[in-house]
Design a protein around this nucleic acid. Structure first.
Length: 323
DNA sequence: TGGTTTGCGACCGTAGCTGT
DNA sequence: ACAGCTACGGTCGCAAACCA
């Protein structure tokens, strides 16, 4: 039996009236009135008491840490990756408290809510969390895994988990992984490639969770063709004094920034290791309007801003020429 | 100006192919 | 023969374009 944040809230605020508090102040008030400490069975075993705590914004980073075995890669959590949480957090405060355990050194291990934790740090908002005193590491891992079901992990994070299953022998091969993770073999292939890429490269993107298999496969191909030294150069480009590559993009929207970053990386790779025979030997005939590419005996034409009359003339010419 | 439509790009799974 | 990869087709979401 899993324990979820939503269950905790149901206990705290009453199942019929979901939740009425709209600000952290209200939430705390409600907590004081109804239950500052609640007891729940963790993983269907012993009852554990959880105390609702409020961590002030400037202390979140120092007083709490993310559970070490959490599969979520913390360095990917930036304003883009957290945009879904940040919008409501800024407007109305934290809607659902996180769940954690007290460590021996007095810090709080965040088990469920690492995205909310980072959002509070970024937005400068107080962090609400239910804290228990005695949760062993096994139960902590259980809570952490259940929590990660809320927001799917990125391909990189899935790939890291898959790698671990392969190394431990829990999974024999990629087929077994596909069964275990309930996904296609193609996705397993992509996830493992993602996990094979260095963190610094992926951090060039605004939101790693947005990177799908095709993007990862392409990136992996580009990266793996580089020599060791060139890989280092590329990673240097991904993060300079100004920050990550995505921070240098002027594009609007995560999708566009992502595309921008892909193009930046592609250009860097090309610069470092020019392909012997250009992948696409595209030639600009009239800049911005007409280009063509030649591959073997094939010719591909690309025309822009062509009206119907001109199109008809061109097609007729081709027809007459090649018939 | 705000709501709706359209078009593009990126995703995923399936099926078939390739290399060991 | 089999594990893993790639190409293809259908689907979805986002942003630009359009219209009232």
């Amino acid at each position: 039996m899993a324990i979820k944040t939503s269950d905790l809230n149901a206990r705290l605020f009453g199942k019929t009236n979901k939740r009425r508090a709209t600000t952290p102040q209200e939430a705390q008030q409600a907590a004081k009135e109804q239950a500052q400490v609640i007891e729940l069975a963790v993983a269907g075993e012993e009852m554990v008491a959880f105390e609702l705590m409020r961590i002030e914004a400037d202390q979140v980073e120092t007083d709490t840490v993310v559970f070490a075995e959490n599969a979520r890669e913390q360095s990917f959590l930036n304003e883009h990756a957290l945009s879904d949480v940040l919008v409501t957090l800024r407007e109305r405060g934290q809607q659902y408290p996180a769940v954690g355990r007290m460590r021996e050194d007095g810090k709080i291990d965040v088990l469920d809510g690492s995205r909310r934790r980072m959002s509070c740090i970024l937005a400068g908002k107080p962090f609400l969390i239910y804290v228990a005193q005695n949760i062993n590491t096994e139960h902590a891992k259980f809570l952490s895994d259940v929590a990660n079901a809320h927001k799917p992990l990125s391909l990189y994070e899935k790939g890291k988990e898959m790698q671990a299953k392969l190394e431990s022998g829990e999974a024999e091969d990629q087929k077994a992984l596909a069964k275990m993770f309930q996904c296609s073999e193609a996705l397993v292939s992509g996830a493992l490639k993602a996990a094979d890429l260095p963190l610094e490269l992926l951090q060039a993107y605004p939101n790693v969770a947005d990177l799908g298999r095709p993007t990862i496969v392409k990136l992996h191909k580009q990266f793996s063709q580089l020599s060791h030294a060139d890989k280092g150069m590329l990673l240097k480009n991904c993060r300079d004094d100004d920050g990550f590559a995505w921070q240098r993009s002027a594009a609007q929207g995560v999708a566009r920034i992502t595309k921008d970053v892909s193009e930046m990386i592609e250009a860097w790779v090309e610069e470092l290791s020019p392909s012997k025979r250009p992948a696409s030997n595209k030639v600009d005939l009239i800049k911005g309007r007409v280009s063509y590419s030649r591959k073997g005996a094939n010719l591909a034409l690309n025309l822009k801003k062509v009206d119907d009359d001109v199109m008809q003339e061109i097609l007729s010419f081709i027809e007459a020429k090649l018939n």
